[in-house]
C-alpha cells in the first residue's frame, strides 16, 4: 500500500517535471526564436571586429597589443575563411597562409 503511494507520488512528480520542462521549452523558444537572427548577426559583427584586431599586424596595420593577439591567431584560424569571404575577399588576403 505504502509502496503504491510512493510510486504514484513519484509518477506525479515526474509528470510535473515533464510539464515544467515543456513549459520551459515553449517559454525559451517564444522568447528567443524571433530575435535569434538579429542577435546572432550583432554578435558576428563584434567577432568580425575582433578578428580584424587579431590579424591586423599581418595585414600591415600596427597593433600595440600584437604580442598578446598573436597567441590568439591559432584559435581564430578556424573562422578565418568565413571571415575573409564575408568581408568581400574571395581568396585569403594573406600571402603566407592560404586557407582556400
Amino acid at each position: 500500500m505504502h509502496e503504491d503511494g510512493h510510486d504514484s507520488g513519484k509518477a506525479t512528480l515526474s509528470t510535473w517535471q515533464a510539464w515544467l520542462r515543456q513549459a520551459r521549452f515553449f517559454a525559451e523558444e517564444a522568447y528567443s526564436a524571433r530575435y535569434r537572427g538579429a542577435i546572432a548577426r550583432a554578435r558576428r559583427d563584434e567577432d568580425d571586429l575582433f578578428m580584424l584586431m587579431v590579424f591586423s599586424e599581418v595585414m600591415g596595420v600596427p597593433n600595440p597589443a600584437s604580442y598578446y593577439t598573436l597567441e590568439l591567431q591559432p584559435l581564430m584560424l578556424e573562422r578565418f575563411h568565413d571571415w575573409h569571404r564575408r568581408m568581400g575577399m574571395e581568396r585569403s588576403p594573406l600571402d603566407h597562409f592560404t586557407c582556400c
Partner: peptide
C-alpha cells in the same frame, strides 16, 4: 541556427 531554424508549429 540563425535565420533558418525548423521551429515547432505552435511556437511559430
Amino acid at each position: 541556427g540563425v535565420d533558418f531554424v525548423p521551429t515547432n508549429p505552435f511556437v511559430l
